[in-house]
Each structure stands twice: as structure tokens, then as C-alpha cells.
């Protein structure tokens, strides 16, 4: 099992102040696949990410990242994980290289290894020319690319993207989305990308729909749309997440 799956979540439960946010959530994410996590605001996506990043600990259930039990050896699990948070976490007054260098140091990477990794990832994300530029001078798209490059610097096996394309214009979003799928293929990386933008999702993705802390759907996107004979993903999503509100 540990060889096939990059992320295994079993019966996860979590709540804030007795208000349950995630309930008996179980997911198995295969290695080298792109998973789109779709859900409305308040569905529990950010909490799920905080649990995977170990900023929170589950109150019930277990999480394993590439075969490593996150509760028993959290540091080892973090070493295999790269994250792009919803909100930009770059230091605006430092250059791209200084920001990436800081991340590399936090992962204990030596000077030579850091330089090589920075060159590799900035080139991969097509922002090599921004290396010496202060982040403040970058546009939103470039900042996102730098953040993705940073998340990949320590060569993780799992990449978590928490609404990474939010606030970007449509062409930039499309380009980043395309690049992320390419990255997934190139590096055999497992990507879990949360979004509430349906056009971020592509037919070849695996789709997970989260609503009110439970998994409503967990299957390849192409399979999810056709058997239910919905007009498209948008209709399926509305059926899954809005039916209760409509009924009410």
C-alpha cells in the first residue's frame, strides 16, 4: 500500500471549539497523479491542508505521507512535502534568490545544493530572469511561480497547492495550471490542489469534492462527469454541494 499511495488519510476527524469541520474523512492519493480538491468556502479544504502541513494535528484518524506516519515522524513527512499557501508567504523586501535561499536553509540544504536547486526550479517555472529581483517588484503571476519553485526546491514527492491560482488573471491561471500538470508528469509528483474555480480542473485530473467536512466525490474527473450525465462539471458540483441549500 505504501508504495502505491503518496497520501493516505484514514478516518480523519477535526473540529474547532466542538464544531466539527472534518468528519471521518478518508482519502487515498496515488503517486504521480494530479488531484483537484473542489469545495465551497467552509468545506474544510484549508483545515485539510493545515492537517497535511502539520500546522494542526488530527483529533481522530491517521495521515501518512509517502509511507511515513505523520503523527509518529512528522519531520520526515514534512521533508517529503512541498506547499504553496493560499496567501503569499514571500518576503516582499527580499529578492527571489534570498527567499528561496531561506527556504533551502530551513531544509538544511548546503550552499552548492541550494544554488543548483534554485537554478533548476526557477528555470523550470520560467522565472530564471527574476532571480535577483525583489519580490515586491514582481507581478502576481510571477510571485506564484516563485512560490511553486520554492515549494519544489527540496525535491518533495508531494506538492500541496492551497488555492494557488486565486487572484490571478485568466491567461496566467491557465498557463500555471498547464505547467503544474506538466510538472506532475515530469517529476512523477503527486499534486493535491484545492480550488473553488471549476475551470482550474482538467478532464485528466482526479476529482475530490469536499462539502461540509465530508468527501462527496472521489474519482477521475472524466468518469465523474459522464456517468452522472450532467452537462458538465459545474452542474455536477452544484448537485453535490448545493442540493441541501436548495431543498432548504
Amino acid at each position: 500500500m505504501s508504495t502505491e499511495f503518496a497520501i493516505v488519510m484514514k478516518e480523519i476527524g477535526f473540529g474547532y471549539h466542538r464544531k466539527p469541520v472534518l468528519q471521518s474523512l478518508s482519502l487515498n492519493l496515488k503517486k504521480g497523479r494530479y488531484y483537484a480538491l473542489l469545495g465551497p468556502n467552509g468545506a474544510g479544504k484549508s483545515t485539510l491542508f493545515a492537517l497535511l502541513c502539520q500546522l494542526l494535528r488530527p483529533q481522530a484518524g491517521t495521515i501518512s505521507i509517502v509511507g511515513v506516519d505523520a503523527a509518529k515522524t512528522p519531520r520526515q513527512a514534512l521533508a517529503k512535502t512541498g506547499v504553496v499557501f493560499q496567501q503569499s508567504t514571500l518576503d516582499l523586501d527580499l529578492t527571489v534568490e534570498q527567499n528561496l535561499g531561506y527556504h533551502a536553509a530551513l531544509h538544511g540544504m548546503g550552499a552548492l545544493q541550494t544554488r543548483t536547486a534554485i537554478t533548476r526550479e526557477l528555470s523550470r517555472l520560467d522565472v530564471a530572469d527574476k532571480r535577483k529581483v525583489k519580490v515586491r517588484a514582481l507581478n502576481g503571476g510571477h510571485r506564484r511561480r516563485v512560490e511553486i519553485a520554492r515549494a519544489l526546491l527540496h525535491d518533495p514527492e508531494v506538492l500541496l497547492l492551497d488555492e494557488a491560482t486565486v487572484g490571478l488573471d485568466i491567461p496566467t491561471r491557465q498557463q500555471i495550471n498547464q505547467d503544474l500538470r506538466e510538472l506532475c508528469r515530469q517529476k512523477a509528483l503527486t499534486v493535491l490542489s484545492s480550488t473553488h474555480l471549476i475551470d482550474d480542473i482538467q478532464p485528466q485530473d482526479h476529482l475530490i469534492v469536499l462539502h461540509k467536512g465530508t468527501v462527496q466525490l472521489d474519482m477521475p474527473c472524466a468518469d465523474a462527469v459522464s456517468p452522472y450525465s450532467y452537462q458538465g462539471l459545474s452542474e455536477l458540483y452544484q448537485q453535490l454541494t448545493l442540493k441541501e441549500e436548495v431543498a432548504a
Binding site: L55, Q76, V83, F85, S88, T89, L106, H107, G108
Partner: peptide, 18 residues
């Protein structure tokens, strides 16, 4: 609040050390 604290806490090194 800006989230950059998370970058530090995502390091695989022990949190007390960080």
C-alpha cells in the same frame, strides 16, 4: 497573519529548534 510563519514551521527540523 501574513502566512510566512508557516514557511518556517514547514521545515523538517524540530519546531523548538526553529
Amino acid at each position: 497573519e501574513m502566512g510566512s510563519m508557516k514557511v518556517m514551521l514547514m521545515s523538517p527540523l524540530p519546531r523548538p529548534f526553529l
